[in-house]
Design a protein around this nucleic acid. Structure first.
Length: 587
RNA sequence: GGGGUCGUAGUUCAGUUUUGGUCAGAACGCAGGCCUGUCACGCCUGAAGUCGCGAGUUCGAAUCUCGUCGGCCCCGCCA
């Protein structure tokens, strides 16, 4: 396989049936085991590991490899030999054979690497990032990168077979102030002006619909100058999809088909389709999240009706009181951790109730009558030993807080060892607008080219908070994999939406005039979706960090640890660009 | 922008509070030697640290104080 001038076989393919063959292998020294009379060398490449043996009479070879150690690059010529039965290594694919060395060429030496190249590695990530090319030699990371390739390959096949065209769009584009901060690129030809690195190909793909390419996709690199998280990178990849003459159902069907195929091709997992659907409201009220993990229960319940009238101030003054049952017996210390979570999400704290010895216990129990207690026990399905959390306040914040607590319960008790379950669902019926308290104005929840639900269009002016968009998110195991929408392709709807959020015609013209202009010439009804490739692979391979699925990722401070980016540049370059630094670090 | 946490041989860590002083330690790796069958080879010997960096307190700082840099995690932000 993959024979070249320097090798006849890879280090992963020789089998019992290769016995007696003369072969040439090339690879890295994984391990040398020198027994004096006899020497073993495990040779590693992308495909596997093969044991090379230098026999006792080959003093010349032994002398030659005297100084060889891990990560030297060798070319070994020799004969494949079946190992004696009791010498077979069942751990590796080539464990039934070994190659008896006849000739060894040291293709390159290696310094002692800063960390060992082995699978069960425990090294500070900073060091792994600095020597990423060494980290990538390890199986775990290597397999991820291979899986990433397979994912892309599988998607290309599926989309191409379904009539989608792969079309590239510019990375260097213009600033569109909505949404995330974008990376700016100063222009040498236009002093004082800047390109923006595309946050996504959103506007281009919609114009491709105007152009008549009714099924488009692209593996689009997206750039966002925002703060990192364990699932966010400043540059990441979306599998950007847009279709014409469709409604939500068409997008769901294609996306479900795509996921089904990818999971089958990459990890041999058969997804059930169609995926479950929840409205945004339902997801929030039952799970406290617009991206709930449905691998476990712990559903939130509205208990406002039970606690109103209890006389307890917090309950009386709050819009809503919600609760969920952890179905666990938590210690005082554990409960404190939940209080910390609540504080982080802006609630003063949580109440908890424990059911022990046939009695509800907790600070708020004294406010509840017998009937209320019984209702509570029934509604939350409380069993002996259960700890229940209760929170009061405004709808969204209270639910989000309990949602964060529920997530903690899940992490602590329910999802351990269940990374190989995949619980996909669609979240639908998102609100179109959100009221910004600080600026006292309506803001779009998604982006402004979203089509409202037909039945809500009449509320656009009178009651924007009541308008839902043709918006959908694809969620799996508590992670937002993707979001998309059916677009507002007609001028009148667009203008009504812009009016709600206080965007004047001139302003809109300035920001995305080219899109509005394009929409004048027969824009077809269209919509799309853009699954995040990195997150999808994270979920599929059960990794909890996005850096693990990217060959050369950035650190949390958006630095390239290996290449030491970003870097300062010569003053000459700045001058050329008409730029001058205001502050320079260390000056 | 805010909060948390970590930083000690090449690597992973112990030592840091109660107690500032026999506190520069282990394992792996590395180097030298021995060893027909290992695959986490084994045995013997050895080298190896600006305790992230800087300042301060002190007779004395890995240990206490302040600052700073970097990694990771979270909130804000962000599809």
């Amino acid at each position: 396989m993959y024979e070249t001038k320097l090798r006849t076989h890879t280090c992963g393919e020789l089998k019992k049936s290769s016995d007696g063959q003369n072969v040439v292998l090339a690879g890295w020294v994984k391990k040398k085991r020198d027994h004096g009379e006899i020497v073993f060398i495990d040779l590693r490449d992308r495909y596997g590991v093969t044991q090379v043996i230098i026999e006792k009479e080959r003093r010349d070879l032994k002398e030659q490899v005297k100084n060889v150690r891990g990560e030297f690059v060798l070319q070994v010529s020799g004969k494949v030999r079946k190992r004696p039965l009791d010498m077979v290594n069942e751990e590796i694919a080539t464990g039934e054979i070994e190659v008896v060395a006849d000739k060894i060429e040291i293709l390159n030496e290696s310094e002692v690497p800063p960390f060992e190249i082995k699978d069960d590695l425990n090294v500070q990530e900073e060091l792994r990032l600095k020597y990423r090319y060494l980290d990538l030699r390890r199986n775990t990371l290597k397999e991820t990168i291979i899986a990433r390739h397979k994912t892309i390959q599988s998607m290309r096949t599926f989309l191409s077979e379904n009539g989608f065209l792969e079309i590239e769009t510019p990375v260097l584009t213009r600033n569109t102030p909505e949404g995330a901060r974008d990376y700016l690129v100063p222009s040498r030809n236009h002093i004082g002006k800047f390109y923006s690195m595309a946050q996504s190909p959103q506007l281009y793909k919609q114009l491709l619909m105007v152009a008549g390419f009714d099924r488009y996709y692209q593996f689009a690199r997206c750039f966002r100058d925002e703060d990192m998280r364990s699932d966010r990178q400043p540059e990441f990849t979306q599998i950007d999809i847009e279709m014409s003459f469709v409604d939500e159902e068409d997008v769901y069907r294609i996306t479900e088909g795509l996921m089904k195929k990818v999971f089958h091709d990459v990890i041999s997992y058969e997804l059930d389709t169609p995926f479950l659907r929840l409205t945004y409201k339902e997801a929030m009220e039952r799970y406290g999240s617009d991206k709930p993990d449905l691998r476990y229960g712990c559903e939130i319940n509205d208990i406002t009706d039970i606690v109103k009238g209890s006389g307890f101030g917090v309950f009386e003054n709050a819009d809503f009181t919600f609760a969920y049952n952890t179905k666990q017996s938590l210690s005082r210390k554990q409960i404190d951790e939940y209080n910390d979570v609540a504080k982080k999400y802006g609630l003063p704290g949580l109440f908890y109730v424990k059911y022990t010895e046939g009695e509800l216990k907790g600070s708020i129990v004294k406010y509840l009558g017998e009937i209320s207690k019984e209702k509570l026990i029934e509604r939350l399905d409380i069993l002996s030993g259960n700890t229940i959390f209760i929170a009061s306040g405004k709808w969204k914040r209270t639910l989000e807080t309990l949602g964060a607590c529920r997530r903690k319960t899940g992490n602590d008790f329910y999802i351990e060892g269940r990374g190989n379950e995949y619980n996909f669902l669609w979240i639908t019926r998102f609100p179109m607008f959100e009221w910004n308290e600080d600026e006292e104005k309506w803001e779009p929840c998604h982006h402004i080219f979203t089509m409202p639900l037909d039945e809500d269009i009449k509320f656009i002016e009178s009651d924007p908070g009541k308008v839902h968009g043709k918006l959908y998110d694809l969620v799996c195991n508590g992670v937002e994999i993707s979001s998309g929408s059916i677009r507002a392709f007609k001028k009148d709807i667009q203008e009504r939406i812009m009016n709600v959020i206080g965007l004047s015609n001139e302003e809109a013209e300035k920001r995305f005039g080219f899109l509005i202009e394009g929409f004048k010439y027969g824009a077809p009804p269209h919509g799309g979706i853009a699954p995040g490739l990195d997150r999808l692979i994270m979920i599929m391979l059960n990794r909890d960090n996005i850096r693990d699925v990217i060959a050369f990722p950035k650190s949390l401070q958006a630095s390239g640890i290996m290449e030491d980016s970003p870097s300062e540049v010569d003053d000459r370059r700045l001058t050329e660009l008409g730029l001058k630094l205001i502050k320079k670090k260390g000056s």
